[in-house]
Design a protein around this nucleic acid. Structure first.
Length: 148
RNA sequence: AAGGUAUUUCAGAUGAUCGCUGGCGAACUUUCGCGAGAGGAAAGUCCGGGCUUCGCAGGACAAGAUGGUGGAUAACCUCCACCGGUCGCAAGACUAGGGAAAGUGCAACAGAAAAGAUACCGCCUUAGAGUGAAAACUCGGUAAGGGUGAAAUGGUGAGGUAAGAGCUCACCAGCAGGUGCGGCAACGCACUUGGCUUGGUAAACCCCAUCUGAAGCAAUGCCAAACAGAAAGCAUGGUCCCUCGGGGCCUCGGAUCGGUCCGGUCCGUGUUUUCGGGUAGGCUGCUUGAAACUCCAAGUAAUGGGAGUUCUAGAGAAAUGAUCAUCCCUCAUUCGGAGCGAAGGUCUCCUUCUUUCCGAUGAGAGACAGAACCCGGCUUAUCGAAAUACCUUGGCU
RNA sequence: UACCCGGUGGUGUAAUGGUAACACUAGGGAUUUUGGUUCCCUCAUUCAAGGUUCGAGUCCUUGCCGGGUAG
C-alpha cells in the first residue's frame, strides 16, 4: 500500500536482490505458484523424460518439453537414492519452487520443466535461479531447431 | 572455589514484504478477508496397544517371547519402589538375576587326569604279597608337594600314619535343614543341627512358570473411465402398401458340411444396452484423544481420582518457505568508563600487573533433524543454555 | 508402509564356540642367461559398540551400511 513508486522496466537483466526491487516487480506481475503451474501426474513426468532434452548445471539436471499451453509448468523429481534424507529433499524442493516462482515471468511460456537434483548438498538460491533460466532458454532454442 | 553424580526444562526472539497448504465467511470463475499450520526426538522401526478386515465350539501340541519380589498400566523387552550381586572414596552406576543333587551334551591347546576320576615327577614300603644275601625292584599304598590350565574335588593348625588323606578334632569359608525375630514378598539378622564338600556352562539342547489367532491405513468401505469377458439387440439390402411424407415384414459378412434352399458348425467387424468383477483415477478412513493446560487432595514413587478451561497440522510427485532489518549467544583485540585485589613510588595521589562489569568495533555460531492412521515406551542423533538436589577435596568463619 | 537377507585380505568364497582356510590379483624372494612355469613369503582390529563365556567370525542386544520382496 505504501509503495506508490511507478513501475520500472521489468525486463532488466540485472535482477538485483534488493527487497525494494522485488516488491516493485510484484506490483506489476504477481509471483504466485498455483497447483496448475505444477506437474503432478506420473504420465506427464514420463512424457517429459521421454522427450530427452536435458541440461546439467553440475548440481542438478533440467528436462524441457513443450506443452502447448499458455503457461509453463514445473515438476520436481527428487530421489531418495541421490539426495538422501528428508530434510535435504525438502530443502531442494523448496528452493526449486522458490526459484521458479521468482523467475516465472523471465522464462519462456508453454514449456514443462522437470528438475532433478544430483547431490545431497543443496546450492544457493541465486545459482538455481540462474541455472533454471539458462536451461529454459537453451531448451526452447533446441526444441525449435529440432522442429525445423 | 574446583571436580563430579542424578533428575528436569528450553530448542533463538520480534517485525516487514512476497508466497504455500487446508478451514471459515464473502464474492461468483477471478479474487478478497479472518484466524491456524512440525518434534524432543516427528528418525530408527526395536517392543506393546487402540482401530480395521479376515478367521474362530472347546481343548492339546508346535513355534516364539519373557524370567529376583511387590506394585503401576489398555498393554509391554516399559516404568516405580525394594532385595541380592559387581564396580566406585562417595553421591551413585550396571545387572536376561528361575532351575546344573530331572535328563542329554560341551570344555581346543597344555596337563598324569577336565567330572564319580586319575598315579607323570614325587612320597612310603620299618603294615601286606613276591624276587633277592643285601641294596633294591615289582605288585601295592598315597592327592601332602611339583608342574599344566580359565577351571584340579575347601583353608589354617593340631593329632594321626610306613607315608598320607575330613581319617579325627578346633576355628573359618561354603552347602543343606530347623527354630526365633523383622518384612506383604524377594530376602535379611541371630541361634542351632547335619554330612564333612556337592565344580563351570541353560544369551547349549532342555525343564518349570506366565503370555501370544493372522494381517495391516498401500488395511477397510464407496464411486468408477479404459481394456478384456458374458448376455441381448442393431447394421445392409430386399419386398409389399401408400395420400410418395412414410409405414409393415424379412434379412450382418466369410469359410465349411451339403447337388441347391432351409438348416448345422467355426471364424470375424462396428455399435448400443445390461451384468458382475474391478484397473487408472476420485472419495473415505483423517484427526476429540488412554488429549493438553491449571488447581485440589491420595500415594515413598510410577500412577490414578476430582473440578475448571481449551480445541491444538492434516499433505498426498506430498504444505509449514524466501528476502531484509533489529536484538539475543560465544570469542577476540583495541579503545573508553566504573570497580576489587596485589606490587612499587616522589604515599590525601600516581604508575604497573591481574581480574570483573558496562559501552563501542570485528569475527563466528544457532545443532540434530521434517508429521503421513493414532497413542504408550525403548534406542540412536543433537550447537548450546538454564534450574534443582546431592557427593568428594581444599580454603575461610 | 510392512517385511526379509547379508557385511570375513584388493576380489570371489570357506570356517561343529577353540591357531581365521582356499583360489585369483598385487608386492618381494628362490629357480632360470632372460622371460614364462613352479615353489616360498607378505598383505585381516572378521562392519561398529556393548554383553554371555575360560575363550566369540560364530551366541544375544543395539547401531551403521548394502541388497531384495509385496502391493
Amino acid at each position: 500500500m505504501n509503495n506508490p513508486s511507478p513501475p520500472k522496466s521489468e525486463n532488466s537483466k540485472s535482477n538485483d536482490e534488493s527487497s525494494a526491487t522485488n516488491s516493485r516487480i510484484c506490483r506489476i506481475k504477481r509471483l504466485t505458484f498455483r497447483p496448475d503451474q505444477r506437474i503432478l501426474q506420473g504420465a506427464t513426468f514420463r512424457e517429459v523424460f521421454a522427450n530427452r532434452c536435458s541440461f546439467s548445471a553440475g548440481a542438478f539436471l533440467t528436462y524441457v518439453k513443450a506443452n502447448g499451453e499458455p503457461k509453463s509448468r514445473l515438476g520436481l523429481s527428487v530421489s531418495k537414492r541421490k539426495v538422501g534424507k528428508a530434510v535435504q529433499r525438502n530443502r531442494w524442493k523448496r528452493l526449486f519452487r522458490e526459484a521458479f516462482r521468482l523467475e516465472q515471468h523471465e522464462l519462456p511460456k508453454g514449456f514443462d520443466f522437470v528438475v532433478v537434483p544430483l547431490q545431497p548438498e543443496s546450492v544457493s538460491l541465486e545459482k538455481i535461479r540462474a541455472g533454471l533460466k539458462k536451461h529454459a532458454w537453451r531448451g526452447k532454442r533446441r526444441l525449435e531447431k529440432r522442429n525445423g
